[in-house]
């Protein structure tokens, strides 16, 4: 293996580690939300610093590889994709942190009825699955998996689109639970962003592997 190939492989491993860390951040945040576990939520907030450190390290590694090796073709696409994937993963990490902070600040767990009506937990599960699919696609160089992410995003969008109405109905029925309902709405918005960012990541994987630009095109 040449020095260049070694650098690329090390970068790939670094990105996968960051991906897994953020997946773990999302899973822990969901657990913290379901079990109203503030300690777990605090752990997520603390670990967000590690996500940020990964982002900086990966940016720097890409910069160095560009400067030292002038990559072309699939290597160039890989690095361009990694730069954007890195930024999207970091934002997903921010979202996990944002939800974790809400769990720390609030004094009350979501009621079963609120979770059921808004489908927030279902949405959370699905967004984690989408994010995991992007990782699987990257690990296996498999664009079929990446393409499945686009369909799953439609599911998140659907919940998001109807969420205003759902929350409005819930508040009318449960006026004492208005704060929780608004938090649920805010989390739905954040999860919808995870869907968008996972979709962006899937687009980058397809660009890297197939040299096709899918940005701003209709996919499903």
């Amino acid at each position: 293996m040449t020095q260049f190939e070694t650098e690329i492989e090390e970068l790939r491993e670094e990105v996968k580690k960051m991906w897994k860390l953020v997946r773990s951040q999302l899973t822990k945040t969901l657990d913290a939300l379901v079990n109203f576990d503030k300690d777990l939520a605090r752990e997520v907030v603390v670990k967000e610093k590690r996500v940020n450190a990964y982002e900086l390290k990966i940016d720097l590694d890409c910069e160095n590889i560009f400067a030292l090796y002038q990559p072309v073709a699939i290597d160039l696409r890989f690095l361009l994709a990694v730069l954007k994937i890195n930024s999207n993963i970091e934002r997903i990490g921010d979202i996990a942190e944002g939800i974790a902070k809400y769990i720390i600040d609030t004094d009350k767990v979501f009621s079963e009825e609120l979770s059921k009506q808004t489908r927030v937990l279902e949405m959370f599960h699905e967004s984690i699955v989408m994010f995991e699919d992007t990782l699987k696609s990257f690990e296996n160089d498999d664009t079929t998996i990446a393409r499945k992410v686009f369909k799953k995003d439609d599911f998140l969008d659907q919940i998001n689109v109807t969420s205003n109405e759902t929350v409005e109905v819930y508040i009318k029925q449960n006026p004492e639970d208005i704060n929780q309902a608004l938090y649920a709405l805010s989390i739905i918005r954040k999860l919808e962003r995870i869907g968008d960012q996972s979709k962006n990541i899937a687009e980058e994987i397809i660009f890297y592997l197939e040299a096709k630009v899918l940005k701003h095109t209709k996919k499903s």
Partner: peptide
């Protein structure tokens, strides 16, 4: 040629593989 060559031999050559 330098972003998306059609032939794998071209890609292997320009990427140093």
């Amino acid at each position: 040629m330098f972003t998306n060559p059609d032939d794998i031999r071209t890609q292997n050559y320009i990427t140093g593989r």
